[in-house]
Amino acid sequence: MASLIACPHCGPRPKEEFTVRGDAGITRPAPDAGEDAWYAYVYLRDNPRGRHREHWHHTSGCRRWLVVERDTMTHTIYTVADASAEGETA
């Protein structure tokens, strides 16, 4: 994991200020979406070897939820954006 995450609000900050939540690709289904949709939401995750989009929380900073795109093999961070800009997820 890279040492710094460039928060769009606070600038480059040490990664210890952030908390990872995980796969940003999952969206909370409607309450009546059915068992398969809920199973996928609760248990199935994208787990790529390479580029991955994740939710990170800037816990010790602006406390905003961010979407971080990074490489799970090289730990390079490509983009960091505020999660609200990504529309409705999770």
């Binding site: 994991m1 994740e54 090289t74």
Partner: peptide
Amino acid sequence: IDGYNSYAQRGNLA
């Protein structure tokens, strides 16, 4: 564990 998804066989100093 370090706590984030990783396929690299190395971890963080924290």
